[in-house]
Design a protein around this nucleic acid. Sequence first.
RNA 1: GCCCGGAUGGUGGAAUGGUAGACACGCAGGACUUAAAAUCCUGUGACCAUUACGGUUGUGCGGGUUCAAGUCCCGCUCCGGGUACCA
Length: 716
Amino acid sequence: MTKNEKVKYIDSKRLAYYDNALVWWCPSCRTVCANEEVLNDGLHEKCGNRVEKKNLKQWMLRIPLYAERLLKGIDTLDWPAGIKDMQRNWIGRSTGAEVDFEIAGLNVNLTVFTTRPDTLFGATYMVIAPEHALIDLITTSEYKNSVNNYIKATSLKSDLDRTDLAKDKTGVFTGRYAFNPVNKKQIPIWVADYVLTGYGTGAIMAVPAHDNRDFEFAQKFHLPIVCIQDPDVTDHEQKKRILSGNECWTEDGKYINSADSSTGINLNGQNKEAGIALITKWLESKNLGTSKVNYKIRDWLFSRQRYWGEPFPVIHWEDGEVTVMNDNELPLELPELENYLPGESGESPLSNSEEWLNITDKNGRKGRRETNTMPQWAGSCWYYLRFIDPKNDELIFNREKEKYWMPVDLYIGGAEHAVLHLLYSRFWHKVLFDLGIVSTDEPYQRLFNQGMILAFAYESESGSRVSGDLVEEREGKYFHKDTGTELKQITAKMSKSLKNVVNPDDVTSKYGADSLRLYEMFMGPLDVTKPWDEKGVKGVFGFLGRTFRFMSNPDNIFTGQEDAEILKSLHYTIKKVDGDIENLRFNTGISAMMIFINLATKKGRITSDTALTFTKILSPFAPHAGEELWQILGNTNSLSYEPWPDFNEEYLREDNFNYPVSFNGKMRFNIELPVSLTKDEIIKIVLADERAQKWIGAAKPSNIIVVPNRIVNIVI
RNA sequence: GCCCGGAUGGUGGAAUGGUAGACACGCAGGACUUAAAAUCCUGUGACCAUUACGGUUGUGCGGGUUCAAGUCCCGCUCCGGGUACCA
């Protein structure tokens, strides 16, 4: 091996490599970005502007090497199903086979990836991506012009156009044929941009009878369509259309037209599973193909043209060698700059600092530092590990501490990180695990997505949005201030253009931080998207006020024996809040506290023990009010060090249960009965009740269901 | 197109298959006040009654299972999110 070959080989095995790549470039941010950062409409996740493709030398991380591990690990996580699905889809595992097609007149094979090798008999043509490496070789001289023109036209299209025009397929013939390995038939090779260069081998076999895209293409360019699966339809006309290649059949069916005496293969009559197994075995035995797993996930573009970002400790030398700085030369720090903005050139602002940039080694060899910096994900990929031991200046963290704290028990964050931070950091963590640096295979055991808080916005009859400052409310209805037309209240994301942004500072100055906090928890379930409503803040503000006024008034607090009903309610509240905190159901916990305060207010007084206990359960929700009440109630220390109160089941025990009595499932009246009664006793008492007699009348109950401490249902 | 969620009063939302609408907002009426704000009390799904702690109906739509369905099953509709020539 030459030195260059060696470097190339080693680079091909590295997780990180430096290469020319067609990458996403955001002209507004003047930086490149990762696939994961491009939204589905071609906009940059960070700034919302359109991104374009650019060929640049960049750092890449081989996340696909971990695709299988990242996929398998998902099953072990206690994460929302939606996020798990999104990661699975992004990784995009599909199983199939790579099949070699011999190109006529050339001593070269064209390899395709297919998930359905069993449909080889239906492959009537092939398509390669315009960027395919063999395109020049394959194209015959007669077709050079049209193919070159097509390649040029495609390259001018932005990626967005390429997918936008998805409905109307384009393509040209290369003039070349390949042999279908199952029947040795010659099939034409086409170029079309509906085949993508980055997935599989960048070439496909087309089975137009059973694939919509291929069907559409074959119809447009009059390519043969051979049906090889017996369609399971009752409509005779439809069946005829499918069998004659005039309609696409994408469901499964028993094979037909799938045998060839020269190759000796016969799939006819088999089902899909058997067919795939048979053909794969045959392909492998003839050395024509292998089973293969493919992933959608691509290498992760890991450099940006920003000033703020970790610099790569890498030097590019004048002789072409690229070296990594020694450990004792680290950390590499960013230089002070006059101008921090990226230039037009596509190079990072670090290239402006001559002093920092240029370097000479002890042999006088000149070098240049890497000017790209790492993306923000670099920090978020391991911050949770550093948090374990942030002041350690010897090691990333102390191993014992890492063992104690990891994995993260509960991670609360937004769903927008599904295939960004949450995928990236899992990848880093697995690499660190393989290196023996961390002790767990996964970083975040339980993930919880909090819902987005929306705000009210206003919409006119025609559906156009009206800015919040142009709206006035009259008698519960909304009107346009200028035109006076009635508007519809809707909920929408907070945005500057809709002028519906709620500033937490304003809420805090008006109602206090406790109210803000409490309302956010009271609005509804944590994981649900819901609108901010200032009226709701008033509600919890009122609750805090009532609580504070009642508890801080010495006339309401006494020492002695607590009222039984209060005691029961207090212990019920402790139990409820306790469980609700554990399950992140803050809204119902707060509701329980409101019920307690309503009762206490009604009764007029509580013991100081009760007051102190209630203050403890209130304080995680309203820490300011909690702390202040704690001191008003006579303490000098801080409430934050108090242990969480226990509830006592004794106080929760009921002697009676108020049975709902139903007739045919319809609740008619309640009857309070001791919990100690047997079913028969209950039935006896209920039937004797005159209200029951009213509903039964002359009829005779055919069945009576008694569920202890729950319900009585009389079936007539 | 495909994959996930979701749909309950005027509003946000409660409800281990067992009393639908807890709690809160809003609204209505009342108390306090010269008045307002604040606070407190009462009522509040809809409909029919109002002689009654009265009846009917009701959890997006259509079916089903069950003594009993907002909850489970089947088939839809609409809304939100993700993803898409991935072979």
